[in-house]
Design a protein around this nucleic acid. Structure first.
Lengths: 196, 196
DNA sequence: CGCGGCGAGTAGACACTGTCTACGCCACCC
DNA sequence: GGGTGGCGTAGACAGTGTCTACTCGCCGCG
């Protein structure tokens, strides 16, 4: 099945994903996506009543890819029998790697102003992933409040990814190597690795 | 001196600030700001050659207000003789409060896509503030690497503010009270408050 | 077989945007 | 008093998202 034979709905999304990877968020005009998909500017309207819904569908694709990536990385780590703390570190690293590899998609995914309306729906996509995240936090660090530490750790990762994404990290530290920061953050929230 | 007598440059910025506080980032069209300031749509061009430069000026105003707010809060805490750890907590709380009180401005300030070009200039505005931040971290927690801890803590604050700003916090925790998260974060990065 | 309906995509209109350019107007200075 | 230059106006232009009228090909039904 070639690219042109799929239904327009998915063709528009993949066209948007390519456009996003190549030229960034500001290139995701409705007409531009339609051009990239080879249809007229009115065509998307049949499947996505508004521009934002199309963007939301593209972002949903990104969320799916992120959760897939993280799930794959984690099941790999789980079958290797790694302790929950190392699995968490791996998840965090994969998260940051995804943000670095897909900067446009990462930006779109957290631009709530572009996605509003479908926002709650979108966020709930990443909710099961958060649950396993929180579960691992509970296992790795049972003496702390699980929910609070999980949210705090997640916030730290997001903040770090964002700081790097728009160059502040390089401004503050000289380069944008996140590895030392990553271990520092995990140590901070989960406690220093005493049992080693 | 009434509003209409100031030079157009500052009038445009204050008009943008009001518009931003009232209707959010997407309301900051060039023509809309000009209307709010009571001039024609071509007038801003004499002072801001492009739309983005006007937005950057508005964001710069926001950065100035943020650093002023934080500096005021911290000098207050400093004259009260609070230990560096409590000053840091106060700074963090003030930061989060600012983000909650000025959501539109906070969003604009970290929308690098709208500010690019003047981005480095803008970021450097908040650099001295970061230095005092890092200094306090060094005093409060001398046994850790100061730069790394400071950046990690800052990233955590930003991430938390952003999580709350677009509603994920409420989705994860049920409400969006940041106070328990704030203390948890400070404890995590600075160590549990042993000397108490 | 013929034909009506219908889904899918096209094309144009509309209001609006940011940018560019030509033009008026008023104050100031020699 | 007559230039002159800064400041703001107004219109043109390409491009945008949305809405609406239209066409075309395919399907099922009489």
């Amino acid at each position: 099945m070639t690219e042109e034979e799929k239904d327009l709905r998915t063709r528009l999304v993949t066209a948007g994903v390519e456009l996003l990877a190549r030229d960034g968020v500001q290139a995701l005009g409705l007409r531009e996506i339609a051009r990239q998909a080879g249809v007229s500017h009115g065509a998307p309207r049949r499947y996505f009543p508004t521009h934002r819904e199309l963007l939301a569908a593209i972002a949903r694709h990104g969320f799916g890819k992120l959760t897939d990536t993280l799930a794959a990385a984690d099941t790999l780590a789980a079958t290797d029998g790694l302790p929950p703390r190392d699995r968490l570190t791996g998840l965090a690293r994969a998260h940051l790697r995804f943000a670095a590899a897909n900067p446009g998609m990462f930006e779109l995914m957290f631009r709530h102003d572009l996605l509003e309306g479908s926002g709650a729906d979108l966020r709930s996509t990443s909710l099961p992933l958060f649950r396993t995240f929180a579960r691992l936090v509970g296992e790795a660090c049972p003496e702390r409040d699980t929910g609070t530490t999980a949210v705090a750790l997640l916030a730290n990762l997001h903040g770090l990814a964002q700081l790097r994404a728009w160059g502040s990290l390089r401004l503050l530290t000289g380069d944008d190597d996140v590895e030392p920061l990553l271990t520092a953050i995990v140590d901070a929230h989960l406690g220093a690795p005493a049992q080693r």
